[in-house]
Structures are given as structure tokens and as C-alpha cells.
Design a binder for these strands. Structure first.
Length: 555
RNA sequence: AGCCCGAUGGUGUAAUUGGCAACACAGAUGGUUUUGGUCCAUCCAUUCUAGGUUCGAGUCCUAGUCGGGCUGCCA
């Protein structure tokens, strides 16, 4: 089983008899869509609960009604369900605790540990001090408990306008940790809440809601990302100073970043709003809905989350690792089909017209239990344009004048001639097949170095294919200037392709391996007359890599 | 500048807690192959620096260096 520093801590606590059970949680704010970075948080919390035989809670951290709504809750639930994460009855909302939180705020006032402050937001800011200078006490800091109680009650009753007052914890305005300089507990916000309606016009801050929510639910380990590290003293302060039913422990780990990707909600939102992508579920987006539409599998994402590990080091993972996990998963389960994405016609001159010969290919090579499909061969076929070269370089094993190759599952053909247009582009290839090679081998057992895929020019299914490259052309899109300037103008390319007949049965969401090309899935934009496939991920291509290297050497 | 955190191949993680720096991805080379895929083999490190403790240090101590976070009535 994978281990990490958090599990080491839990092991030690368990050995010391500190817990009866382990309880973790994933606490999304319903104000945006889940992305691949969240998966790390989701699975570290989820797998720890699973592996230790504990509970996993899903809690929506909805303490800011001005940004949150139900559509996000639904989208997040859908994404988590797709990932295979299960929380059973343990679905909670921070808004479920508003009443309890309010009572605890009153308790702090009664203890002389909280006060109502009339300072304006600007004044609060100037009183806070700076990174290097201590802050000053608010002139309202020493109001009597009675006055604070009355004022806070008034805040709750709607007696005061937004921003006119806040409730603050009375801690230490000179504390070196800014979060401890009398942090805000409640602010006035006359805003409709998607769950509590207009019941409240004051809402608790994150810091006042999170740890207490954990304590109410009996969460033992509140695992979150590094930027909350400086909040831990405050998290602990509330837990220590409130009569909470349990004492959760917050442990922080680093966020996941990916090369060639931006991961903040704000930046993803900008990509959508400025129209650089078609929406949150654009297949180029690192959102879960984007990956789902792209054809990624939950298994691949889960494996990826397992492999990246959990530490406190700033983490930038090579996107190639995600693609590796995907290929590994799809290699074992995607049915094989043939499709030609950049077609050039081949006429097999010694093959009769108006005849169709049917060959057979396995759905999954090496696993006959997955069955076979029939593949038609006709006099005219399409092959990939880059599978033919008039003047091939060394080590080119595909079709060329006088060269023989195998048409996958079918037979051997030898190029005898080709036709060019006025510009010298090859427009058609003429070839002859060896009747003795039917099935893909010959009695004389002669070797052919290359096997290429093909699609009948008459027995096929035409469709649109959307080819993708990374959205950004910089490994770190934020490295120089505005990340928008590093958008890859070639991230989407649409082509018209031809596929083998069985592809007519493909349904939205199905993923296939187009042999020798990559994995492709059926996009929701598909209509009965216009099938659309997304390139999920290409196959590794050592030939292309080799060519790229040759090009680099020449230039 | 004050506080907090981090530092092991190109990348991400390990290292039986003081005992031969391991695994994966990426990259390179070769083999197998009816997918130039898969699979298999081989190669790829002064553990940030300098001192110190020790028979022995990635691990402990001291001093630096570099990187990240924090001045919302966001989460």
C-alpha cells in the first residue's frame, strides 16, 4: 500500500490509541467546477478513509452565498460520482451548521473572546499592520460583553447594512501570523442563500466554519492544501476555545500542478468567459467534465492520483504521466478499430471492382474473449497520407513505389505507380495485391516490414474528428506575462475521417483505439448523420519522435 | 523585511528511521511484434552549499543559499 507522511502520522496516532476510527472529508466550495488538481485532494482524503476502514464525508463549504449556487453542487456531485467516490449518507453542508455556529459565536462573546467592530473595511485593513509591522487594536475592541451581545444580535436581525460591522475574535493584533490579528468571524451580507434562503443576513467566515464543521462531523483528519498552513493556528484556536464535540487535526499537503496547464478556478473561468474554449467541459480543459468528455477514464485518473504521491513539496507533475496512466488503462480495454484521418486513395489494380472481401480482426489483440469484427477490403481503399512516400528516407517501413506492405488483417500490397496533381501532390496510389497473402501472411513466409491500416473507400463510415494538442505552448503558462498569451493556437484541429463499418454502432462516450493512431471517443455533439470523435490521447509514436529529432538536427 | 513551510536524477515519489540512494514517468539505445502500439532488456544522481558529530550521514547538529505561502468583511 502506498504510504506518505500523513499516513505515517495516522499510524503513529493509531498506535498511541488516539482514535477509534478515521474520518476524512472533501470540502469543495460550490462556486466552480472540479479540476484534476482537486482529484489529489479527493483521493488522498478518500483512500485514507477507505484504507483505514473509516468514513469519508462530502461537505460543501458554502459560507459565501454571493458566489455559490446549486448548479455547482450538482456538477460536483456528478463529477465525484463519475470518479467512483462514495460518501453514502455522509453528505453535509457548512450551511447546515449556521445555527450552531451562531451560538458558538455568542459563546465567544460571552467568554470575552469576540467583539463587534464598527471599523470600515479600509480601516480594518490599516489597523491590521503589515507583514513586518504589528497591528493596532480597534477602538471598538473593549466593548462590554453586553454591548457586544446586543450588537451581534442586531447584526443577525438585519439592523445594520452590509459592511458596517463585523464580529471579530479577540486574539492578538501584534501576532506575527496575520491570521491571528483579530480575524473576522461573521460579516453582514444581505444576500439570498441557495439553501437557507433569506434566513440569515450574517454569514460565518471560512475559518470559523471549517474546523467547527469538522468537529461536528467527527472528522479526525482535515487534510487540505498548503495555503491553509498559516490558518492552522486559528483553526486550533477556535477548536480550543469552543465547546466542540471533537478535536480534529488539520494537516496540509501541496497542491497538484501539471505542465502545460493552468489550474486555478479564476484562470479556468477566464478561459471560458473569453471564449478561448467552448465551455467548462471543453475536452482541452483540465476540469473533470473536460477529461470525461475527452474520453479519460476514472481508473486512469485514480491511478494518476495514486502515483503523484502526497508531500509538502511544491509539485509540478509532467502531463505525460497522466497520459501514461490513461494509455495503460485504455490499452487493456479499448476495442480496436481502423480509421483513416488524413486519407489518400489507393486503387488495387488487380482487385475486382464491385467485390467486397471480408476479413476479421480481434477487438482486443491477445484476448479473443472480446470477440472479433469484420473488416471489408475493396478495390479502392484509403490509407493515411503519411504512410506513403515517393522518396522515403532510410528506415521508412511503409508504402513507397516498389515497396510491399501489409494491410492490417487483410493482405500484402505493392505500390506500382502514383498520380500527382498540378502542384506535384500525390493524389492517388496504384498498387497490386498478392492473392496468396490473404489473411495477412503468405505460404513462402516472406517478411514485410510494415503493416499499415486502411479503410475501404466504399464500405466505410465518414465522421468528424477533433484532434487536440495541449492548450498552452509553454510548460509553465504563467512563466512569462499573461497566461492567455501562451495559448497554443493549434490546440484544436478538425478533420474529416473515414472509419471501418463497425464504427457505425459507436455510441456517445464509447472509447476506441484507432489502430496505429490513438484513442478516440464519441463526443456528445454526435448526431445520427454526423458522428463526432474526440482524440482522447495519441499512441506513443517513436517514428514521429525520430523524424522530429532528424528535423531538429537539420535545422 | 516579520511569520510559516519546503529542498533527493529532467519530473514525481522511496529509502527498513544513522548502514550498498530505490521505483515510476520522461529521454536514449537495442530486441520481439500482423499496431513504428504493447511487451522485454540496457543506459541516465557529487541527495542545495559549507562546516561539524560518527566506524558510518540523504537522514543528526550549526551557519548559509535558493524556492513557495501569508497583509479578503474569499475559500
Amino acid at each position: 500500500m502506498a504510504t506518505n507522511f500523513i499516513r505515517d502520522i495516522i499510524d503513529a496516532e493509531l498506535a498511541a490509541g488516539k482514535h477509534d476510527a478515521i474520518v476524512t472529508r472533501f470540502p469543495p466550495e460550490p462556486n466552480g467546477y472540479l479540476h484534476i488538481g482537486h482529484c489529489k485532494a479527493i483521493f488522498t482524503n478518500y483512500t485514507i478513509a477507505q484504507d483505514y476502514g473509516g468514513r469519508f464525508h462530502l461537505r460543501f463549504d458554502d459560507t459565501n452565498p454571493s458566489k455559490e449556487d446549486m448548479s455547482y453542487v450538482e456538477a460536483i456531485v456528478k463529477d465525484l460520482s463519475w470518479l467512483g467516490v462514495e460518501w453514502g449518507d455522509n453528505l453535509f453542508f457548512a450551511s447546515d451548521y449556521y445555527r450552531q455556529l451562531y451560538e458558538w459565536a455568542v459563546y465567544l462573546i460571552e467568554q470575552g473572546k469576540a467583539y463587534v467592530d464598527d471599523l470600515s473595511p479600509e480601516a480594518v485593513k490599516s489597523y491590521r499592520g503589515t507583514l513586518t509591522r504589528p497591528g493596532r487594536n480597534s477602538p471598538y475592541r473593549d466593548r462590554s460583553i453586553e454591548e457586544n451581545l446586543t450588537l451581534f444580535q442586531g447584526m443577525k436581525n438585519g439592523d445594520f447594512p452590509d459592511g458596517s460591522k463585523v464580529l471579530r475574535a479577540k486574539i492578538d493584533m501584534a501576532h506575527p501570523n496575520l491570521n491571528m490579528r483579530d480575524p473576522t468571524i461573521y460579516r453582514i451580507l444581505h444576500h439570498h442563500h441557495y439553501r437557507t434562503g433569506d434566513e440569515w443576513c450574517i454569514y460565518p467566515m471560512y475559518d470559523f466554519a471549517h474546523g467547527q464543521g469538522d468537529a461536528i462531523e467527527g472528522v479526525t483528519h482535515s487534510l487540505c492544501s498548503l495555503e491553509f498552513e498559516n490558518h492552522r493556528p486559528l483553526y486550533d484556536w477556535y477548536i480550543e476555545n469552543l465547546p466542540v464535540p471533537s478535536k480534529p487535526r488539520q494537516i496540509e499537503f501541496s497542491r497538484l500542478n501539471l505542465t502545460y496547464t493552468v489550474m486555478s478556478k479564476r484562470k479556468l473561468l477566464r478561459l471560458v468567459q473569453e471564449g478561448h474554449v467552448s465551455g467548462w467541459d471543453d475536452p482541452r480543459m483540465p476540469t473533470l467534465s473536460g477529461f470525461r468528455r475527452r474520453g479519460y477514464t476514472p481508473e486512469a485518473i485514480r491511478e494518476f492520483a495514486r502515483r503523484v504521491g502526497v508531500t509538502k513539496q511544491n509539485q509540478v507533475v509532467d502531463i505525460a504521466l497522466l497520459e501514461f496512466c490513461l494509455r495503460q488503462d485504455l490499452e487493456a480495454k479499448a476495442a480496436r478499430r481502423m480509421a483513416v484521418l488524413d486519407p489518400i486513395k489507393v486503387t488495387i489494380t488487380n482487385f475486382p471492382a464491385d467485390t467486397v472481401e471480408w476479413y476479421q480482426g480481434p477487438n482486443l489483440p491477445g484476448d479473443e474473449s472480446m470477440g472479433f469484427r469484420k473488416v471489408p477490403l475493396t478495390r479502392q481503399i484509403y490509407i493515411e497520407r503519411d504512410d506513403f512516400m515517393v522518396d522515403p528516407p532510410p528506415k521508412f517501413f511503409r508504402l513507397a513505389p516498389g515497396r510491399e506492405v501489409r494491410l492490417r488483417y487483410a493482405c500484402y500490397i505493392t505500390a506500382t505507380d502514383y498520380k500527382v496533381d498540378r502542384d506535384g501532390n500525390v493524389v492517388e496510389i496504384l498498387a497490386q495485391f498478392d492473392p496468396a497473402s490473404r489473411g495477412g501472411s503468405t505460404p513462402d513466409r516472406r517478411k514485410v516490414k510494415g503493416t499499415i491500416h486502411f479503410v475501404s473507400a466504399t464500405e466505410n463510415v465518414p465522421f468528424q474528428v477533433r484532434l487536440y494538442q495541449s492548450l498552452f505552448n509553454q510548460e509553465d503558462p504563467d512563466s512569462d506575462g499573461d497566461f492567455i498569451d501562451n495559448l497554443n493556437p493549434h490546440s484544436l484541429k478538425v478533420v474529416n475521417a473515414f472509419g471501418e463499418p463497425r464504427l457505425a454502432e459507436a455510441r456517445v462516450g464509447d472509447v476506441f483505439q484507432f489502430e496505429r493512431k490513438g484513442y478516440y471517443c464519441v463526443d456528445p455533439d454526435t448526431t445520427p448523420t454526423n458522428p463526432v470523435f474526440n482524440q482522447t490521447v495519441s499512441l506513443r509514436d517513436s517514428w514521429k519522435r525520430r523524424q522530429g529529432r532528424q528535423l531538429r538536427i537539420r535545422n
